[in-house]
Design a protein around this nucleic acid. Sequence first.
DNA 1: GAAAAAATTACGACGGGCGTAAATTTAGAA
DNA 2: TTCTAAATTTACGCCCGTCGTAATTTTTTC
Lengths: 212, 212
Amino acid sequence: MDVEPPLGLREAKKQETRQLISDHATRLFQRQGFEATTITEIATAARVAKKTVTNYFARKEDLALDHHEEFTASLARAVDARKPGESALAAVRRAFDTALRERDPVAGFAGPAFARMVADSPTLTARLRELHEQREHALAEALAAATGAPADDVLPRAAAAQLASALRLLFVRIQERTLAGATDTEIATTFGAEAERVFDQLEPALGRYAVR
Amino acid sequence: MDVEPPLGLREAKKQETRQLISDHATRLFQRQGFEATTITEIATAARVAKKTVTNYFARKEDLALDHHEEFTASLARAVDARKPGESALAAVRRAFDTALRERDPVAGFAGPAFARMVADSPTLTARLRELHEQREHALAEALAAATGAPADDVLPRAAAAQLASALRLLFVRIQERTLAGATDTEIATTFGAEAERVFDQLEPALGRYAVR
DNA sequence: GAAAAAATTACGACGGGCGTAAATTTAGAA
DNA sequence: TTCTAAATTTACGCCCGTCGTAATTTTTTC
């Protein structure tokens, strides 16, 4: 799946520079908050030019929310990987249970410091909203492909909206509990039941949708 | 419901100034796009200081998306106004049908120029996302109050997420059709059936939720 | 008409983002 | 090995949105 890594010197240095900048950014964000940290500060700390930072990270938010690929693709992947006889809802449900057991950041586990940083920054909150939307779009395309729906059909998009909203709600509530001081383990034990209630509500509407 | 309008001279001039700025902003936005128009231009056109513009409108987006109160409150109001024996879903459904008949901007009718302006501007798109979220929050509170749910209960929020997502999807699709060149009348006749499919999908999950 | 309150104004600062051209580093070939 | 071409990094400047502050003007109130 991945590209062959001959990884010339140039490529290697690029990754190092990127990581260097990202590390300093993370450290400064945690220490003094996202909004209070300037790109110039990050550049100075990493001993590169300001422009180099903005070359690697087009927007400042990307310095804090980097691994967004995994997040936006997670639901579509869960649907693509559903087992024979399993509905899209069941697949998403199972994926969430797994994420819960593994304290996966994709489900909302990211540590109190990270949750605080996001909650305190309108910029990051907005970016997170956008990522949730992208995740829904990716899911909609996966559902359209899985069901062979006609082009521009509303059904896969409606199903994606319902599923993605449920996951977004659980994500937000996990972050809320984190900010309230709950540990990951406490949350993981609590949210099994919580997720059950949310998914059970969707069951009559989506239980037989996109069954493989 | 409204405040007594003695409307002293000061208050009257404030409203006039606000309207004056808003009108010039709207005109410039339509002519040259949102991003291409600067606050300074708007201030110059309205013959006021730049600071006066930012005093009235804290963020530039507010100059384009002004009447957001009505939008964010619309779903909660629909639920509050539901009739005896009517569920929250039925109330929202009825409200959408009405909005469709009246070509209400709240449902997504805003004219091709406006739809184009929003679609072309990341800033406005982000702001619209935020408004959709606020609308969902207001709906969640209305549902919690209507059902007497315990504090922090997930159910009203889950129901609000499903309902608001459905309305958001219809909103987005109406804008898409508008951008594709469809007239409001064409859209209104088409989206009756579209909404039916979306709401019917929710019926088994929410048909008996929050019945008055 | 004067004093108090409020709105508007001018001015400046800061940060994020973008473009451009020069300088440095790397890759590939002679 | 050395030279050339390509890519990366850098320095510099600009624009715009946003925020503070203090001075000025306008409106209200006595």
